[in-house]
Amino acid sequence: MSEQNEKLNKEKPYWNPYLSGIGLGIVLLLAFVIMGRGLGASGAFSSLVVSVENAVAPSHVQSNEHLKGYFEGGVNPMKDWLVFEVIGVLAGGFISGMLAGRVKKGIYRGPQITDKMRIVYAVIGGVMMGFGAKLARGCTSGQALSGGALLNLGSWAFMLSVFAGAYALAYFMRRQWT
């Protein structure tokens, strides 16, 4: 019985990266063909942030050129392609994780760091990511992946910068990961 349980709980290995990449590429191609636009992620969180800000402090939103832009044309920023797409990403990630026995509470980190410090780094990294994605007009999905496939000039400059930035800081982060 316990042996059977162990078998059921055992995780399946990740897919071959090239196979996963072809799958992702086909999903991206379908987005271009059906909708005329690519994938994204950070944009959905932008919609969420401005919607909450607008609910709490509408006059503040109206006084900010950038935030105001989300409400031009009278459309609700939550009724947006990226918002619905990211809800799908959560669902798709969950489905794949369930099928592979990978939906479990946990924290990914290197062997030399505590869970607590790992969480601190996760939040700090997220803040940098959120700010950087806004400045760059998109994140790894919207710029690097989608813009990359369209050979968008800014997307490729962005992509090279992402790798440059990450590799430049990797040495200082080695205690977290290795």
């Binding site: 990294g125 990511m129 994140c139 910068s161 440059a164 930035g165 430049a168």
Partner: peptide, 8 residues
């Protein structure tokens, strides 16, 4: 933005 995002 890409550099900051890479740091993150």
């Amino acid at each position: 933005g890409g550099l900051i995002l890479g740091f993150g």
